[in-house]
Nucleic acid binder design. Structure first.
Lengths: 181, 181
DNA sequence: CGGCGCATGTAATCGGTTACATGATTCA
DNA sequence: TGAATCATGTAACCGATTACATGCGCCG
């Protein structure tokens, strides 16, 4: 065992900011969504567990007149645990499952037009995703951030997403060309 | 709901071959492992369920003197179900979780040398994977298979794996260059 | 005052892995 | 005859999603 990636994602986000469960939920909807995510129904029980483990603690703040917010912060034990995880080389993870490629693998059982439709529909989706990724950050990353700024690693991760989408589009174009010829 | 990808992976594999649970298990260790996999402990219960659903059936064969093998075959209902799944356009899946990028995202909390070590160690792993992917199939795909042969879709899926690894290596090289400058 | 977003939780279920468990076949 | 592989299953657990459930705050 010993994975607990959600634990370390949360500890990392709390490393220099105190956040509520809801804030964390919102973070997983932002740029992180490119490589990690979690729903609130997973976050709240995890936070409870982390507090029991002693790697986080919380203070209750009152918003308005009675709305309770649990503002979590990382403890010293949490920092230690997190840094230990971060600096331990983990074996490369298995290539993730991919539904589209599973379907493509069986596409020999489809009519040629259906194959092409499947491929071009998918290409269109990836082109949109690529355009969206680029547009969202063309201003932010017009200049490559300083290599020690907080933004630098956002940039590296964003660059990976863009390069991956570009490659996927190139691959799908090749597939279409080969199928259509 | 309505995902059941393992179900359709199995039906696809049974589409023109009769196989035992063990055969299916071995298939998931082959070229398919690039985009799908399953352990025997998941396969056997699934086959049982599929038989109850009526999409597969089986005959018991005796190997040697007493070893029972359940040889599964797809039923007409199964073929229909499978083709229906295959020709239905599914929404693009969310980008899969990626532990390495999660760690990289937090790499600002590491010492510069540790960052570089993390990146080059990962690059080395991906280079090996790429070399392995290429070597394994350089003979098989020296000539692109006929577009209606069974091998053609194996080729497309293999090409994707190679292109993806190439891109990952290029990205890691860029990361290292930016971190080291 | 109504609707959307903030805020927190639990329950049921699913897909998947790890571990437990058994026994036959084949080949060195 | 012993080890590797063939062959089939169950149990416990984990990570994650979907659905259920509640209530306040804020802005128009």
């Amino acid at each position: 065992m010993q994975k607990r990636h959600l634990k370390y994602a949360i500890l990392g986000l709390l490393y220099n900011e105190n956040l509520t469960g809801y804030d964390l939920y919102l973070k997983f909807g932002g740029p992180l969504s490119e490589f990690w995510s979690a729903k609130h129904s997973q976050i709240y029980p995890e936070l409870k567990k982390l507090a029991e483990e002693g790697v986080v603690s919380y203070d209750i703040e009152i918003a308005g007149t009675s709305l309770e917010k649990k503002v979590y912060s990382i403890t010293e034990a949490g920092r230690e645990d997190f840094l230990n995880w971060l600096s331990t080389i983990e074996p490369m993870q298995a290539t993730p499952k991919d539904v589209f490629r599973l379907r493509l693998f069986f596409a020999a059982y489809l009519e040629p037009e259906a194959r092409l439709a499947m491929l071009s529909e998918h290409l269109e989706e990836h082109r949109l995703r690529l355009a969206h990724l680029r547009r969202k950050n063309e201003d932010v990353f017009a200049v490559i951030p300083e290599k020690d700024s907080a933004l630098f690693f956002d940039y590296l991760v964003w660059l990976n997403a863009v390069m991956r989408e570009e490659t996927t589009c190139r691959w799908l174009e090749t597939c279409i060309a080969l199928c259509a010829e």
